[in-house]
Write a protein that binds this DNA or RNA. Structure first.
Lengths: 142, 142
DNA sequence: CTGACTGCAAAAGCTTTGCAGAGCC
DNA sequence: GGCTCTGCAAAGCTTTTGCAGTCAG
């Protein structure tokens, strides 16, 4: 497959992803880019995200919910997914670099990479839940 | 949500999953079950798999490809996904039980569980590729 | 009997793809 | 000029859902 070095859309997509702290879905990037490029299409966003992932310039994150998320940071790190709000964030936790070799020793085949994803409730959702509870306690005694 | 202990279909789905060594998708289970229950519907398979997962009797596996896979073994273990044939298999590798606590120490929130998935090429796909190459070498000199 | 469960079919995501035209080198 | 890329729209897949009838307890 032959690929040009640049295209206005591809650069914009990569730029958008690199400027974000979260790990958005294709649709989130699309909605954001439409402010600046009203005619960009969702198909183009998907095509370029897939292309950039194949080229190793970005990384896909598969997690609960079925929707793909994208990460500009391709270095070895892991993620946390909030089961409540669905947000995906980096976890400043170094993954064990020997894991791939360890997995390969089982004779399974050739191991290229691994993904480590944690699931739970993020702090802001926890605090929102606490507030909801205290509101209930105030409102409850009817 | 109120749930009955048994239903013919739910028992069949759980039975099918428990008897398998692979980690099938909903559709794979559906096609298998139709041999014995020709009138079972795919919707029922999905509904029950989701229910069983919520009850903690089975486990969902999220991996590349977007399609959900299901695992009867809910114990702490990790998986290997072949990028070529898409098969998902258990990896006899114990995951670090301290990982959740370690992740929680970052202050991210409450960590409930984690998933560790390795990607690569499985041995049978590797061997198939080797054979294909040797066939090419025989056929190539035109 | 009652309400949870099922089959069926339609709908709802998310993602890919075919095509004709636009744009880069 | 040739080839890649884009926008648009349609199609493809997986998964969910509404409804009327069925079944388990």
């Amino acid at each position: 497959m032959k690929v040009r070095k640049h295209s206005r859309q591809r650069d914009a997509i990569l730029g958008n992803l690199s400027a974000r702290l979260d790990h958005p879905t294709a649709d989130m990037i699309y909605r954001d880019l439409r402010k600046e490029y009203p005619r960009i299409s969702l198909g183009t966003v998907y095509r370029n995200l897939n292309l950039l992932a194949e080229l190793g310039q970005i990384r896909k994150i598969h997690c609960e919910g079925g929707t793909e998320h994208y990460d500009f940071d391709t270095s070895d790190h892991c993620h946390f997914v909030c089961k409540h709000c669905g947000s995906v964030v980096d976890l400043p936790l170094e993954t064990d670099h020997t894991l791939n070799a360890l997995a390969e020793q089982t004779g399974i085949g050739t191991v290229e990479c691994h993904a480590l994803v944690f699931y739970g409730i993020c702090r802001s959702c926890e605090e929102a839940a606490k507030k909801a509870v205290s509101r209930e306690q105030v409102a409850a005694p009817l």
